[in-house]
């Protein structure tokens, strides 16, 4: 589990930022992106995959979250 920040990218879409690794990459896909369910599996532009526990409401971005590495 690692702390991450998801924020709105200036070019549209989302940005994934992990302070510990200085990783700043665009998010390619997000599993759940609905008003009542947000989160799930994340695929980053560089191919890495992370999982965040789905939230009941869409958060206001940027948001600090805990993410788990998949695979």
């Amino acid at each position: 589990m690692a702390n991450i920040i998801i924020s709105q990218a200036t070019e549209g879409g989302l940005t994934f930022y992990m302070p510990k690794k200085d990783l700043e990459v665009p998010v390619k896909s997000l599993e759940f992106n609905q008003p009542h369910k947000w989160g799930g599996a994340l695929t980053l532009a560089d191919g890495q995959r992370y999982y965040i526990d789905p939230l009941d409401t869409m958060p206001s971005l940027p948001k600090s979250l805990r993410a788990k590495r998949m695979d």
Partner: peptide, 12 residues
């Protein structure tokens, strides 16, 4: 950048 990110999240 750390404090900027914090202010973005907390104070918008």
């Amino acid at each position: 950048n750390y404090i900027s990110r914090h202010m973005e999240e907390k104070y918008g």
